[in-house]
């Protein structure tokens, strides 16, 4: 049985949690006390670091300069980091690559996950076992998954072996060292790992569609595809938005699997935004510049997210 908590709310506002009952002072004090650790951790990781990030991003500071970060004002550079960023084609390429990976992986994961979820809607022999096995990829440590696919895509590895068997002649593509195929291999790994998540969430949504309403639609003469379009999909709308949002957000961060498989290479062929920032941080060590990149991304994401949330709220009002 699945219980949908979605039709009426997308709980990001926390408004539902205000208890109706009057809370005496003792309760209020305890409430403050209990929420204090979480508040402090948020402050510790969000507010102060962001100010620091803003400050450093306006300078040329690097940990190799031998001066403390608080003295970074000595290296003030007149917003050069931001103007440089606008002209940094490697950054924009990485951003574009990240968008490309997202544009292919997320819809693929969605469609595969939805297809599988539809197959799991009613009961059949072996359902429970298949369901558990289907979830394994998303629980494998991403770095380990990266290593699995690193092995699979070696030129003498199993993928080429299977392809050879299928086409009936030797096939020895060096997937990870050719710029064209490395990105494909990386995307296959991402789809392998995260289709189960879509499957899991969408299946929970599908079994939550009231059976009576489906039967009512059938009795009114609706075909399977009509029921799917007019009953299932509208009722799944919120769930689909949640599932897609989760994957879009996570996919944007793509790093672990990809970095283990290709290290961003060959060259910059698989360099996504996280890999790019990592390389600048670890290899080039120009942290003032990294701070600027990070801040731009944070601000852009914040704007996107608040737009998305306000649009969703507006849709909920209507």
């Amino acid at each position: 049985m699945s219980m949908l908590a979605t039709e009426e709310k997308l709980s990001v506002t926390g408004d539902r949690s205000t208890p109706e009952t009057r809370i005496e002072d003792g309760g209020r004090r305890l409430g403050l006390m209990l929420t204090l650790p979480a508040q402090l951790l948020v402050l510790f990781i969000a507010v102060f670091p962001l100010l620091m990030q803003l400050y450093i991003s306006l300078t040329d500071w690097s940990p190799l300069d031998g001066i403390g970060w608080w003295q970074a004002y000595e290296l003030w550079n007149n917003f050069a980091n931001y103007t440089d960023l606008a002209a940094d084609s490697r950054f924009w390429d990485a951003l574009g690559r990240t968008a490309l990976v997202m544009a292919i992986c997320v819809p693929a994961e969605f469609l595969l996950g939805l297809g599988l979820a539809i197959l799991f809607m009613d009961n059949f022999v072996g359902k429970r076992l298949f369901y558990s096995v289907m979830l394994i990829p998303m629980m494998v440590v991403p770095a380990v998954a990266g290593y699995m696919f690193f092995m699979l895509f070696q030129s003498g590895g199993p993928v080429n072996d299977i392809v050879s068997t299928l086409i009936g002649r030797p096939f020895a593509l060096a997937w990870l060292s050719s710029p064209g195929t490395a990105l494909i291999a990386v995307m296959i790994a991402d789809i392998w790992q995260w289709t189960p998540l879509m499957f899991l969430i969408l299946l929970a949504g599908l079994v939550g569609v009231p059976e009576d309403q489906m039967r009512a639609a059938t009795l009114l003469g609706a075909s399977w595809s009509q029921r799917f379009r007019t009953i299932v999909m509208p009722k799944m709308k919120t769930i689909i938005i949640i599932a897609l949002s989760i994957r879009v957000i996570e996919n944007f961060k793509i790093f672990d699997t990809l970095y283990i498989m290709t290290g961003g290479g060959p060259g910059v062929a698989t360099e996504t935004i996280s890999v790019y920032i990592y390389k600048v941080t670890q290899q080039d060590l120009i942290w003032g510049y990294v701070a600027a990149i990070a801040l731009v991304i944070l601000i852009a994401l914040s704007i996107l997210v608040s737009l998305a949330i306000s649009r969703m709220n507006a849709a909920k009002e209507a």
């Binding site: 949690s17 996280s274 991304i297």
Partner: peptide, 21 residues
């Protein structure tokens, strides 16, 4: 007790941003 009304959204945002950033 309805304390910490800011936490849900603050924490979602925390999760949202790439750790790299």
């Amino acid at each position: 007790f309805g304390s910490g009304q800011n936490l849900p959204l603050a924490l979602i945002q925390l999760r949202l941003f790439p750790p790299m950033a």
